[in-house]
Design a protein around this nucleic acid. Structure first.
Length: 202
DNA sequence: CATGGGATTGACT
DNA sequence: GTCAATCCCATGC
């Protein structure tokens, strides 16, 4: 249970993208002195049309087909940088999109970078969290094992974190797949919350 | 080389 | 609820 589920090992990412997505919930994303807990992710796979890798190997998608544990960062709607973790063995195009975080350390710095909102609004969206942690396009192709942007294991208190599934957000193709995973008990999950999360929250 | 479509957000009605 | 901002890149001529 220890080695195989440690995000500091490359083997952690060289598995089914859905298994990696579930295991990333509760882990900690770090960039310098700013850290935050992953509370929402989505999985994408080349076999399905919402995944960028679905079009095959191009300059844009080459990172997705590369080494597992690599960061895939791309610009969305011309404005926002979105962060993904490349998964599955090399040659398979798949990644986990990091959609929301719960800030832990460097909260002051996050506020300065975001210049808006309260605590919850710092990282409750894929474009928000990259701004808060200062993740940009130049991080594309970098290693999530070696940094500067790294994923650290779940803290003991989050060892048994539970999650619910929902359909992925903001896509038009393959929108019926329940490949969104949200931590139960965090206010920092992005809107709209999946029905199962509202029920779990009571 | 021109075109079109986004894995979003924040401001506004 | 609506809508514009703005850039990368896949595609097609």
């Amino acid at each position: 249970m220890s080695g195989a589920l440690d995000p500091r090992e490359r083997s952690f990412y060289a598995r089914s993208v859905h298994d990696v997505a579930r295991d990333l919930v509760g882990c900690v994303l770090r960039h310098g002195e700013t850290t935050a807990r992953i509370v929402e992710v989505e999985s994408y796979h080349q076999e399905e049309p919402a995944c960028h890798a679905h079009v095959g190997l191009t300059p844009r998608t080459s990172v997705l087909f590369g080494e597992p544990g690599t960061a895939y960062v791309y610009r969305s709607y011309g404005i926002h940088a979105l962060l993904n973790a490349v998964c599955e063995p090399e040659g398979v195009g798949a990644a986990v999109l990091i959609r929301a975080l719960e800030p832990l350390d460097g909260v002051e710095e996050m506020h300065e970078r975001r210049r808006v909102g309260g605590f919850v609004d710092l990282c409750n969206g894929p474009g928000k969290l990259t701004q808060a942690l200062d993740v940009e396009l130049h991080h594309n192709g970098g290693s999530l094992l070696e940094g500067p942007v790294v994923v650290e294991p779940r803290p003991p208190a989050w060892r048994d974190v539970r999650w619910v599934t929902g359909t992925r957000i903001g896509i038009t193709k393959a929108a019926d797949l329940e490949w969104r995973f949200c931590a139960i008990g965090s206010r920092c999950v992005s809107r709209p919350w999946p029905p199962a999360l509202r029920e779990a929250a009571g």
